[in-house]
Design a binder for these strands. Structure first.
Lengths: 231, 231
DNA sequence: ATCGGATAGATAATCGATTATTAGTGCTAT
DNA sequence: ATAGCACTAATAATCGATTATCTATCCGAT
């Protein structure tokens, strides 16, 4: 019985192109404000316009690109204001979900949290090859740790909300990326894990809110091309 | 000097088709599970497949349709469980946003809340023409009231989150909603308005949470009563 | 009679080409 | 010189047709 071989080679084209585009934007291959020209992309990927267009529309739906009617698609230029808004949204929402998660998570969830934290702690945040940005392995481990923490809530709608915010957050960070030198991210994550597994919802929610506040305030200055004349 | 005539006739085709499709699904023109066949839609709308496809992809992104690879698109069949999940997500998120809104809303916001409530209170919830469903005018007024309440927060990211949840919620309700006869929605909305304008965040948040709980469970009274059938 | 494979029809996915808009460029008239 | 208008090159939006995949039906072997 040969079922679902993990070969990625046999998938819808539009899906592949979509994923490629998504990764490219998240990876920072295009600068904020850059035009995403369907024709160029089609040629690069060796597919037709319709496919690229479909992928672009999906990407726009995820907030990873802007659409300017009759003027094509472009990588969004996040202003500092926008970054703060995303961060505030996360600060508002994630602690609430974490409380639910702590209240409901079962033993399997506990195990997954431990595993995710272990992986995160063991993954180097920076590697020489990837310049000054977080390594992609660490980014993924980081995402999975935070997501796993929330997964105990058992509510896919809330988790999808988290996913959207995370994506927006990561893209904004990619382009602002000055590191926050004095910060001890490792300790923050450890405290988060401990509080969650101790079922101490108050502490966990507070630590998470604090964690997100640090993340937000550490990133200042303009990101994209937009005028950021904000307070 | 003819400037921006409100003629909707001069827009991108894909946008028109997208809106039409969105409205049709929300209005309940298609039953849950119904296939959304690109060819049929294209013929109906008098446009090409690419356009319909683009619109469908957007609709899928909004959660208003499912995509089954190589098997086309379909109206999602919301289970009762799914409905509960959406309701819980709203219960978790909206009160937090409401608190922010009450904390920050200015006089203009207060005025808009009053206006929205007035319009809602004066719009009949049912009209004979639209069967047993809420009238479309009331639905829109209802949405605007709830949204306006939250708009004081001034955070577009949070508001967009609300929009997504509201859309999902409305669609799910369209198909799962047993009406709730004994319920006094009007009073609930009035209490919500009053608490918000009195800047009583605790009460407002509680009333909103209760409001959403009633919507979800179909319970007709009883604030502290048993939470939904979930364990 | 039933299970399985072959076949035909329907529909999804993709492509290549056409039309419509936009952004430049240069020319002309003040 | 410069504002404004044609003209052109680039590219976005749309279309009509082609290819790939699924679904259902029919037929033959057990």
């Amino acid at each position: 019985m040969t079922q679902t071989p993990p070969s990625p080679g046999k998938q819808m084209l539009s899906e592949q192109v979509y994923e490629h585009l998504r990764n490219a934007i998240m990876r920072g291959d295009y600068a904020p404000g850059d035009a995403l020209k369907p024709q160029d992309l089609a040629k690069e990927q060796g597919v037709s316009l319709a496919i690229v267009r479909e992928a672009l529309v999906r990407v726009v739906g995820e907030g990873l690109a802007d659409r300017l009617p009759n003027r094509g698609f472009a990588v969004p230029a996040f202003s500092d204001r926008r970054w703060q808004e995303i961060a505030e949204a996360r600060r508002s929402i994630e602690p609430v979900v974490l409380r639910l998660s702590i209240e409901r998570g079962d033993v399997d969830w506990e195990a997954r949290v431990r595993a995710a934290h272990h992986r995160l702690a063991r993954t180097p945040a920076y590697v020489p090859e990837e310049g000054e940005h977080y390594s992609s392995a660490w980014s993924e481990a980081h995402r999975l740790f935070h997501r796993t923490l929330l997964e105990g809530c058992g509510n896919p709608v809330l988790l999808e909300t988290f996913d959207r915010l995370w994506t927006a957050s990561e893209l904004a960070r990619r382009w602002s990326a000055q590191r926050n030198p004095g910060r001890d991210t490792i300790a923050e994550h450890r405290r988060l894990e401990e509080a969650a597994l101790a079922r101490d919802a108050d502490t966990a929610a507070e630590v998470l809110a604090h964690h997100l506040t640090l993340t937000a305030t550490g990133l200042t200055g303009r990101i994209g091309g937009a005028p950021a004349g904000e307070a």
